[in-house]
């Protein structure tokens, strides 16, 4: 009963133009899939592809902080990687342009209820390759305030803790955490306040990767990126209120 009501609302929310979009059937069998196609892909080509491997815990211990990692195997020339969550009030999570980075992203995210978490990689031919997995979660990850004890102190907002790890083939993994409340704006009285833009550069200033982040990213987001070559990195970015984020990872 409740589910059909949700489906009805979503169906209504999709404009008539949607009828013309080619929607491949969803292996994850989510009623939100057509709406996701409309929102993120429109008339672009979409294929479900096992090459995009998404790892999530089967059940989220903490729906405000669900670890997700995604790796694209063997697809040539990945231009952009996006992540979105079907049943979140704000579905878009992030968009990565892996300019000189490996097609890999690790992040932590808020989940409002049990839902597919999807990652899509766009190759140079314009085709979106979609992978995903269901995560089982208790309600309210996006719309409940975080525990008081975990709140970030004002003077720490935007501070970065980061570390580089060597990879076997000579590349490196970057893990970074940005101290930030990352408020979604969905809690009454708490405006949206979140990290929205990050850039990773090498020591010479060449941009290696660029990330656009959205509201569902977890408080004090933990992000993992991989690069084919080693060397010091510089991180820069800002939140939606133009608080600047700067860090060097030697």
């Amino acid at each position: 009963m409740q589910w059909s009501a949700v489906a009805l609302v979503c169906a209504l929310a999709v404009p008539a133009a949607f009828a013309g979009e080619a929607v491949p059937p969803d292996p994850l069998d989510s009623v939100q899939w057509p709406a996701m196609v409309h929102k993120f892909f429109r008339d672009q080509r979409v294929v479900f592809d096992d090459a995009v491997q998404v790892i999530v815990p089967p059940a989220a211990e903490d729906s405000m902080n669900v670890p997700v990692s995604a790796r694209v195997h063997g697809l040539p020339d990945v231009q952009e990687i996006i992540a979105f969550i079907d049943f979140n009030p704000i579905p878009g999570v992030l968009s990565l342009r892996p300019l000189q980075a490996l097609p890999y992203i690790g992040f932590r995210v808020r989940v409002q209820q049990s839902t597919p978490i999807r990652v899509a990689a766009r190759t140079a031919d314009g085709v979106w390759h979609v992978g995903g997995a269901w995560v089982d979660a208790a309600g309210g990850g996006c719309t409940l305030p975080s525990a008081v004890a975990s709140r970030v102190r004002d003077e720490d907002i935007g501070k970065v803790a980061a570390r580089r790890w060597p990879l076997a083939d000579g590349g490196q993994r970057l893990k970074l955490r940005i101290a930030h409340p990352n408020d979604t704006g969905l809690i009454s009285g708490t405006p949206a306040f979140f990290v929205e833009e990050l850039h990773v550069r090498d020591a010479g200033g060449r941009e290696l990767a660029s990330l656009a982040l959205h509201e569902p990213i977890a408080e004090s987001p933990l992000l993992t990126l991989e690069f084919p070559v080693a060397g010091a990195l510089a991180i820069s970015g800002r939140d939606n209120s133009a608080t600047l984020i700067e860090a060097r990872v030697e």
Partner: peptide, 12 residues
């Protein structure tokens, strides 16, 4: 499938 609305009801 009914778990979510139920949980919400419980919370309320």
């Amino acid at each position: 499938m009914n778990r979510i609305p139920l949980a919400a009801g419980l919370l309320c």
